[in-house]
Amino acid sequence: MNNTCIIKNISYRAWYMWRRNIDVSLVTWKTNVLPPLLEPVLYILAFGVGLGAYVQKISFDGRAYDYLTFLAPGMIAVGIMFHSVFDTMYGAFIRLRYQKTFDAVITTPLSAEDILAGEILSGATRGLFAGAAILLIVTLFGLAAYPSSLLVLPLAVLAGLMFASFGLLFAALAPYIDNLNLPIFLFINPMFLFSGTFFPLDGMPAWVKLAANLLPLTHLVNIVRAATFDRLHAGLLWDLLYIVVLTGAVAYLSMTKMKARLIK
């Protein structure tokens, strides 16, 4: 029962925890289905129609784009991030501390690792759903090129795993639920604003670009934007590699930390 066997202790039973969480989402489906569909519409109204009237064209990668077209992939990436990170960050915290769900499941054949892998998987599923929903809206507004935009779906799963792992890590480290404001303030909000979501990073000072490149959302935005613009290129493999490595590392770390909290 020590940390070296985190991976060995994951079994197919992780899907039972995933199913449990998905079942909960289905019970409360209205509050889960509508936001990812309606949020992008609000963004399009506020930023595209409202702000876009003042912003002429955005130049990106040697071409000029409407502001709304530029913004669309940013919205997709942000949606994936928010929905998966919050699912584990608050969801897992509540299940651990208030609902005692994990205490109930740990005495069944599921291992702590099964439970936590299931948490990350269900967070990623939320990310996939949000990514797909926003892609759908954006497509209806004619803001995504096909077939390259379909790449968003597997990317949403991968990035969902990454952000769900971050969420689980924050939940594991926070003594009280209010402490979760800290990662939102220090990590999630800066990513939301400075990952090339609302404006290209090209014009920013070098140190800002450097900092932005440390943020995982930046790399997701890079790939998603290339996909919806139909401008995919080999250089994006670096972004992909960054996401894959970080996902593995944070998933491992979050499970280790959360397991220590779950069974002490």
């Binding site: 039972y16 449990r20 079942d23 909960v24 409360t28 609902q99 769900t101 205490d103 499941v105 069944t108």
Partner: peptide
Amino acid sequence: EVNLDPDFSVLKNLIVYSRY
């Protein structure tokens, strides 16, 4: 300590638990 699943009904609590 009661650790039933507050998100589910009585029946669903038993069904979900049996899956494990």
